[in-house]
Nucleic acid binder design. Sequence first.
DNA 1: AAAACTACCAACCGCGAACCG
DNA 2: GCGGTTCGCGGTTGGTAGTTT
Length: 306
Amino acid sequence: MGRAPCCDKASVKKGPWSPEEDATLKSYIEQNGTGGNWIALPQKIGLKRCGKSCRLRWLNYLRPNIRHGGFSEEEDRIILGLYISIGSRWSIIAAQLPGRTDNDIKNYWNTRLKKKLFGKQSRKDQRQQQFARQVANGGQKEEGTRDTNGTNGFAAGAYNWHQHAMAMPVHPMSGSIVDGNRTGEEVDESIRKLLFKLGGSPFAAMPPPPMYGESQTFVVPSVHTAPLTEGGIQCSGVLPALELDENFQFNQVKLDGLECFFGMGDQSMRWNEVSPLVCPNTTVASSSQGMQQYCLVEEPVDLGMQ
DNA sequence: AAAACTACCAACCGCGAACCG
DNA sequence: GCGGTTCGCGGTTGGTAGTTT
């Protein structure tokens, strides 16, 4: 027996929602709630829509206190930190960002953040950065840097995000989830608790500082217990060695483009080509000093795990 | 000015999980 | 325990606005 369709597709309207449909759905749910049955809801209120479509419209657009666009640096870091830790579990990531929907975060990741992280800038970002550099140069227009890709010298993989970070001001997160009083350790603890709740062991005490030689190269360990000198890849820069237990191994298959974090794949990656979103405040320290700060989420963030 | 290209995002689709009788 | 139904999630698609050539 095949799967029962959730609705009669022939008689159901698809595509963008009209303002009238929005108003009908919104006013009904605000007054009566969903009634616990999305499938029956559209018939009840005379909408020619699939129940799933109604649910999606409500959750992603009509629900109160939804925020769209305008992701802050802080939100970027939270998304990135959680993506590295738990993969593409957007609903969990969204739960840590009040007002954001999983769909919004997913879109943001797929269209912007992933490219931003791995060096391929969106044109919007390119323009923002070019503008910032012009401002930094006292308004002088940059010339002669456009490459054949039309990326003004910032071709994929060659973009220096540390430079970007200096040019782009860091905006405090709007809303209330940053209280500014919590230490990095408290945030780490929140994430540990979250990961533990998700079924894995919290990655024990943040990783030991990587050995940082004069070559500015160290070996990223595999996710589990691989020693620093085995199974890793050569990377330059600073990277935390996350210790996630086997319950998190499944996430690896979803970590599109992040294989380097987990010692997967055979390509080498230069970490100074990766956005400071990964290691926003990391300091290139001498081998005697060790690493000053860890990555993941470093700003005080209420992860709701208290 | 127009065609081609790119980026963004709302919405759809299908699957597994959870729930219920 | 089983089968049917609904929910929730993540991946993907399609439309459109913006940008480049």
